[in-house]
Design a protein around this nucleic acid. Sequence first.
DNA 1: ATAAACCTGACTAAATTAGTCAAGTATCAT
DNA 2: ATGATACTTGACTAATTTAGTCAGGTTTAT
Lengths: 141, 141
Amino acid sequence: MKLTSKGRYAVMALVDLAKFNNFNPVSLRDISLRQGISLDYLEQIFSKLRKKEIVQSVRGTQGGYVLNKKAKEIKLTNIFDAVDEKVKTVQCKKDSKKGCNGKSTKCLTHNLWDELENHINNFFDEKSLEDLVKDNSERRI
Amino acid sequence: MKLTSKGRYAVMALVDLAKFNNFNPVSLRDISLRQGISLDYLEQIFSKLRKKEIVQSVRGTQGGYVLNKKAKEIKLTNIFDAVDEKVKTVQCKKDSKKGCNGKSTKCLTHNLWDELENHINNFFDEKSLEDLVKDNSERRI
DNA sequence: ATAAACCTGACTAAATTAGTCAAGTATCAT
DNA sequence: ATGATACTTGACTAATTTAGTCAGGTTTAT
Ligand code: FES
Ligand code: FES
């Protein structure tokens, strides 16, 4: 049960972006330097964020990325969804009547994992990018 | 962010064990057949559960495993801890002053992941094996 | 023109997971 | 006693996933 670095980096980079987003685009290079994330990796991540319309790109010199929505409206759920960082606790297909292990009924623990998944997703649904930036405003980078 | 099958199997097997635990030891072979988990894998798992005193073993014919505590007292936390299914959301060493990515301060998202970790662990601290068995008593296997 | 910065797809090394396999030892039923 | 059942241990491995790298673009401000 652990977080992948793709998910962690996505959030980290967006917090950085939101922080430095005074109406000028922020370049990945800057984020890379500030946060210590490989530029090439960031590009992969932002390509996905752009496709899900969380950020907008500005090409060319002085280009970079800008948030495409208000920080308040970007929830962790959206970010995780964009980079395919999914919470997967059940093994079975959720909608199917079949269970994991190829059984014809749901396993003994199915309900439990389902509850857990909801529990975690609630957390992600509530946290917005704005919350994260605020939470950091008292701190140094 | 996903659960490994070691953790899932451990819980599944213990629910099975608790269910069939009418003061006779339950053999891993039976659990294996009922739950569709490889016997060899179950042995690895139960070896760990025994070392953490969650179950007791009874050797020889008619042997098997019994719970070592009341189902009410066995929390998910204990089970996960026993089989090394750990919730790891932060990347850094928690106690160290240093951050992840080799930085000298905690990263922008450290607090967030820490909160998430607590959120998940709360869930595990509250759920007992008894809860799971009860939750299943209305269902068929 | 040129440099900054986005864009894309393919590739790969390392780590982790999910087991299997082999060779035991202990105990009970008969 | 002896066989069968079931626990015990450690080593090994195939498959998957992760966390990137790399090589080549294209776009646009200056
Ligand atoms: S997790 Fe859904 S049936 Fe096992
Ligand atoms: S997760 Fe703790 S410093 Fe980044």
